[in-house]
Design a protein around this nucleic acid. Structure first.
Lengths: 202, 202, 202, 202
DNA sequence: GATGAATGAGCCTTCATTCAT
DNA sequence: GATGAATGAAGGCTCATTCAT
């Protein structure tokens, strides 16, 4: 039993519950996006969700679990996207798969970039969460699988680097106010492929 | 006149002042490193610095200005390092310069990685600061200058990407608990050079 | 019309009602015993009773009335026990009656001592309740009757003192972790009889 | 390091501090006396003390520590009183000493009976505190010393009983609205002496 | 009658900042 | 200049109670 559980308090059964829970997460996401962590306080979230503070605590045992739920949701989407690409890969070459993955990722992260950034920052302040960590691992594992097929050495580290390159570039691009996902995607493609090329050569 | 000035209240002239100011920054850095932003509160900083809370506010108009000062200090060091490399470059080729810059950067960021990460996260929550933004620009400008010499297109964007790749990889490496700066450096070299290679080719 | 009625909302007639009501009281007693007043909240009680919070409020108009019911139940048992002893007294001497009453009382209070203590403390925080006060009076009256038969002066005060001596000793014994009801009973007998002896002598 | 420390946060050094701290304790005592634990909340205490809530938390780490301080103060007074009597005892007989102790105790507890009752109840809900427990032990030890001098068997238990008899009778008397400390004292004397008589006889 | 989602007043506590000494 | 006591807005969270379904 962790001190500050990140999991939601209860899964909403009734229809009304589902709505309340969603409204809370939506409100939280909106605030995080617009005002950052500073503006994220439980009363504010509840008010914006059109829900009483008591209801909020019915579904989330504490503030951090709300952030946790948002992170989890995002990561689930990401994981699903990657799996989709992976399964659709078929005979495609490494380059093609990389491009597809990069595209998928940008397509998801570039819809609400400020939110994604805020979530990424917020996660660092959260206590360790097995569940969350595991989801990250699974995304990495997927990439490891792809890399391994191409006989790339130390695929774990490479997978991490590849993800890290994307993270860094997306973050910087968002900070700089870029809005053209395609252009950014092209650059990320080049960066990742360029990095992989130096490895294959070796 | 910004609402929350990030600049220190006064440039400490006297020796005692200088010492007090340093003690505060040192304490703040230590806390940030060990406990993250959560543990960083002005009373805590003052106590750890062996200074009264009143004195703290003599040197820093508010909490954010302390973080601002830490960020500024780090960036000044970084800038100085980059300039040093730049000036020592002489006839060196692009690859050599890149390697030198990456090495310099890792050498600086890998000494207190947790602090660097915390500062990076903290900056995002700080209000815009012209001064700070300018310093980042100057680092980028330096790289732009290097790139331009090699006739690289859109050097501003490339400079940003190059920095971003390094940022991302360092962050991920630290998160993963890596401690071998040289090994990481080699990978960052490859990533950056790989990226640049795809550009030059075009 | 008191602000916070201590009486149950309705006398449960049907069988199911009776069961629900009992389950609630049982759950409340268990919580009070194990966690003290701190752990006693209506939601907790309802959950432990396997009853919805709505049902709980069907039978008890408010939280205090649950405590009130527990106190009443305990006092009813006590009163019944005392009456029983009183009626069985017959030709017995004062000493014998006292011993019997003390024994009866310990037999009842020592079964769930923590609960009894908690109830006693809780009662002090409850608003005055005519009904409850009356029940205490009736226990006292019984003792007064016994004492009067032995021509003891100011029997009301003496009755109160006799009860108080028992209360105090039981409480202290429980606090100290005593578990031997017989041993405690012997001491209470001596204390009460010793006290009465000083009165009769006078 | 206990979860909820009962000791005050810091000993007030400056004169102003001392005043603030006293004002808080005084206010808390007043509230406890008049409204019981129900009315005792930190904001209320601070307001009544004419002090900001922040100041309150400068001296007391949490609500419970305020109650703890009140209990400690009362017990210190009691202990001092008992020691005083003990030292003044000289050649006095057991009876005389008992009378003096009972008198001393009533003199202290009957000045603010409601407060004393409330504190007694409150203590039961507080987490264990070594310091507090020790003080109680020391009072008992004093009585044990007296009893031992008169070759009374199992003096620890007897001491506890003697104190318990007093506790119970005072509590009941206060509940019943008695105000004549002398009259009550006479009865407590008789109860305690009566109890001791039954032991000596044996 | 039963259910349990919803409510919101109110409590405990923190911490950036001020200001009298 | 230095000190640290004092301030109070603000935030996290609980729990008695209501009411729509």
């Amino acid at each position: 039993m962790p001190k500050t559980p990140l999991a939601p308090r209860k899964a909403p059964r009734q229809d009304r519950s589902r709505k309340t829970c969603d409204a809370i997460l939506k409100a939280a996401a909106g605030i995080l996006e617009r005002e950052g962590q500073t503006g994220l306080n439980t009363n504010h979230v509840a008010r914006k969700a059109g829900v009483s503070i008591g209801s909020l605590y019915q579904y989330f045992p504490n503030k951090q679990s709300i952030i946790g739920a948002l992170i989890r949701a995002r990561r689930e989407t990401l994981l699903a996207g990657m799996e989709e690409v992976f399964e659709a890969a078929g005979e495609a070459g490494l380059e093609e798969i990389v491009r597809a993955m990069v595209a998928k990722r940008l397509q998801q992260d570039f819809r609400r970039p400020a939110l994604v950034q805020a979530l990424q920052r917020a996660e660092a302040e959260l206590p360790e969460d097995k569940d969350l960590r595991q989801m990250r691992t699974r995304v990495e594992a997927l990439i490891v699988a792809v890399l391994a097929e191409y006989y790339i050495d130390d695929p774990e580290t490479v997978a991490r680097d590849v993800l890290a390159i994307g993270d860094g570039m997306v973050r910087a691009a968002v900070d700089a106010g870029e809005t053209d996902a395609a252009a950014l995607g092209a650059r990320v493609d080049r960066a990742v492929l360029g990095y992989l090329a130096t490895i294959v050569e070796d």
